[in-house]
Design a protein around this nucleic acid. Structure first.
Lengths: 194, 194
DNA sequence: GTCTATAGATCGATAGAC
DNA sequence: GTCTATCGATCTATAGAC
């Protein structure tokens, strides 16, 4: 947002692009499609963005920067490992609910980044996953968690949180808060009674 | 396979197409790309397939037919609800390990099916999810499972199983069997000690 | 059944008037 | 900063020789 609260043309383009990329994919969306949603001709958009690639780049790295920052904050909180994992799951779901199309693009269309940026993006995600897995491993070592394989637990959590992007719509019977609670219960306590 | 054990040209085309669709997406893969992998010119492929759409159609519906058939078989087995869910999770992982590219395409590129076929595919998936959720709800009602929201549990399970497609490679430190065991433990027992 | 050649549509991006 | 017009590349699919 600008100081007067009105989004810039560039922000509108990025936002409409993310919605279209989510629905039709990066390659399946044309600059003309985006322009149609924004309300200008495709050629005019080049006064606000450099290329189609750059739109994708902005979306993907904005999201990955948020993830990295969130992980760092949680790592420094004085909480048990179980509580840290809970916070991270909540943050994942909240980001998805608030920024659905962008998260979706960063999850699926990142692979269309040009080679050097793709490498950067993949490394950022690897760092994030490594930090997350370390929290799980530490929880296992501390006796808080069951003797799970940290990698399996990590990807199970990260994936289990992804379906929210396909499913959650604000007017649903479940609120975002209830959704968080249910997913956390399922992942931390499991399906079966013991 | 044909009777002499040699795959037909059509099968080779479908197989190479699925691998490319998985990596570059349906729209991001050209008929020339597929032809290059198969070892013929793009024009020659039209003697074996009707169109690019038809390749996608064959892949998606072959997978959805398998899912529907597997669910029906499991529903009729004389097992507890917990055991039925376990079998379904195992079948999911096995299909993904054995038929990775096709499952990946059915999961991500189905949206590029032409409208009428997209409707059919979506309805088939809805039937599958409904049947799966009913097993979870029955397990809750029978007191086998915790009081989870069946929809949340359903999508958590289905998604948790999807990362295997991104991660599993035959030469990994974890075998397919061990992977199944770990994921099932995580989903049925949860991460946290109780 | 495989090839070369190409039709016809659409793509990202630019030039240049206003 | 927005438009019209268009370039050059690339796409799916077909025609027709062999």
């Amino acid at each position: 947002m600008t100081k007067n609260g009105k989004p810039t043309k560039r922000q509108v383009i990025l936002e409409e692009a993310a919605k279209l990329f989510k629905d039709k994919g990066y390659v399946g969306t044309s600059m003309r499609d985006i322009a149609g949603q924004v309300g200008m001709e495709a050629a005019s958009m080049y006064n606000h963005i450099k290329s189609k690639d750059e739109i994708l780049d902005s979306i993907c790295f904005r999201i990955s920067d948020i993830y990295i920052a969130q992980l760092q904050e949680v790592e420094e909180l004085p909480l048990s490992f179980g509580e840290k994992i809970r916070v991270l799951i909540r943050l994942h779901i909240q980001l998805m609910v608030e920024d659905g199309p962008d998260v979706s693009v960063a999850n699926h269309d990142y692979k269309y980044l040009p080679t050097s940026r793709l490498t950067e993006f993949t490394e950022a995600r690897r760092r994030y996953e490594k930090g997350f897995a370390a929290l799980i491993a530490a929880g296992v070592a501390a006796g808080e968690f069951q003797a799970v394989n940290p990698t399996v637990a990590l990807y199970t959590i990260l994936s289990a949180v992804r379906w929210v992007e396909l499913w959650f719509k604000p007017g649903r019977s479940l609120s975002a808060q209830e959704l968080e609670d249910h997913i956390i219960t399922m992942l931390l306590n499991g399906l079966e009674k013991r």
